[in-house]
Amino acid sequence: MRPQPSIRSYRPADRTAVADICVRTALDGGDSRARYPDEELMPSVFAAPYCHLEPELAFVLDDGSGRAVGYVLGTADTEQFVKNFRATWLPRVAGRYPEPTAEPRTPSEEMIVLLHTPERMILPELRAYPAHLHIDLLPDWQRRGFGRGLMDTFLTALDDRGVPAVHLGMVTANAAARAFYDRLGFHEISVPDPGPLTYLGRSTAAHTS
Rank of each mutant, 00 (worst) to 15 (best):
16 T>C: 01
138 L>Y: 00
191 V>S: 14
155 L>K: 15
57 L>V: 12
91 P>F: 05
39 E>Y: 02
50 Y>S: 08
79 E>L: 12
32 S>W: 01
56 E>V: 12
22 C>R: 02
149 G>Y: 04
76 A>T: 12
128 A>W: 00
183 R>P: 07
167 H>G: 01
88 T>C: 11
59 F>H: 14
124 P>E: 13
203 S>M: 02
142 Q>P: 09
126 L>T: 00
69 V>D: 00
80 Q>W: 12
171 V>D: 05
157 A>G: 03
139 P>S: 04
136 D>K: 11
209 S>I: 11
113 V>Y: 08
9 S>W: 07
133 L>V: 09
11 R>L: 15
116 H>G: 05
157 A>V: 07
166 V>T: 13
78 T>R: 14
118 P>F: 11
32 S>Q: 03
94 A>E: 13
15 R>H: 13
56 E>L: 14
100 P>S: 14
168 L>A: 07
54 E>A: 15
206 A>K: 15
146 F>I: 03
79 E>P: 08
127 R>P: 03
38 D>P: 02
33 R>K: 04
114 L>C: 11
35 R>N: 03
63 D>Y: 08
74 G>I: 12
115 L>K: 06
137 L>H: 10
203 S>T: 04
105 R>K: 15
24 R>C: 01
56 E>S: 15
106 T>Q: 08
71 Y>T: 10
121 M>L: 15
119 E>N: 09
186 F>E: 01
160 D>Y: 07
25 T>E: 01
28 D>V: 05
183 R>M: 11
202 R>N: 00
179 A>M: 14
143 R>K: 08
22 C>T: 00
139 P>H: 09
90 L>S: 11
70 G>Y: 12
22 C>E: 06
194 P>E: 00
174 N>S: 10
79 E>G: 07
152 D>P: 01
12 P>L: 12
3 P>D: 05
101 T>M: 07
153 T>R: 15
194 P>A: 06
169 G>Y: 02
95 G>L: 05
7 I>A: 10
137 L>R: 11
170 M>H: 05
144 R>K: 02
186 F>N: 02
76 A>E: 14
165 A>G: 08
35 R>Q: 09
98 P>E: 02
172 T>Y: 11
195 G>P: 09
103 E>S: 13
154 F>N: 09
37 P>A: 06
119 E>T: 13
49 P>S: 11
104 P>R: 01
28 D>L: 09
6 S>Q: 15
169 G>S: 13
54 E>W: 07
124 P>T: 08
173 A>W: 06
150 L>I: 09
61 L>Y: 02
132 H>M: 10
123 L>K: 10
24 R>S: 01
10 Y>A: 09
36 Y>I: 01
143 R>W: 05
99 E>W: 09
185 G>P: 09
86 R>L: 00
147 G>M: 02
127 R>W: 01
185 G>V: 07
85 F>A: 06
68 A>S: 12
177 A>K: 07
67 R>Y: 04
91 P>T: 10
145 G>F: 10
160 D>V: 13
125 E>R: 05
21 I>Y: 05
47 A>I: 07
81 F>Q: 13
35 R>H: 02
101 T>K: 01
63 D>M: 06
181 Y>L: 08
45 V>I: 15
173 A>D: 13
183 R>Y: 02
